[in-house]
């Protein structure tokens, strides 16, 4: 008959390192992200040829065309799916590992 099966495990966990980190309460604590992680996007203006294919495949309408036939990304509408990166024939779009995207106004959340 098993009762209190977790007792030994729970007791030894008192002395081991915990599985959580003090992310925002201590400065510099965090867990690193991997290289395929899709964070905030980065856009190479010079490589872009203005084909506007990314606008047709963006699910949330986060990409809009500007006057010089280049594009503008709205980070607050982006869902970080990565389809624009796949569709672009010139590899002008990439994703960084920045996930702490905070701003005090919507104008700062635009990548040109």
């Amino acid at each position: 008959m098993k009762i209190g099966y977790m007792l030994r495990d729970a007791f030894w966990s008192l002395f081991k390192k915990p599985a959580t980190v003090q992310y925002l309460t201590k400065h510099g604590e965090g867990v690193p992200v991997t290289e395929r992680y899709r964070g905030k996007m980065v856009y190479d203006r010079d490589a872009c040829i203005g084909c506007l294919l990314c606008i047709r495949t963006c699910p949330s309408g986060a990409i809009t065309v500007t006057d010089e036939r280049k594009v503008m990304f709205r980070v607050d509408r982006c869902i970080f799916c990565g389809q624009c990166m796949e569709t672009c024939p010139k590899d002008a779009i990439g994703f960084t590992s920045d996930f702490e995207i905070v701003a005090l106004g919507r104008e700062e959340l635009v990548v040109r």
Binding site: F11, P18, V21, Q22
Partner: peptide, 10 residues
Amino acid sequence: LHARMQKRIG
């Protein structure tokens, strides 16, 4: 102590 036994910081 309850949190430490659950592998959390608490």
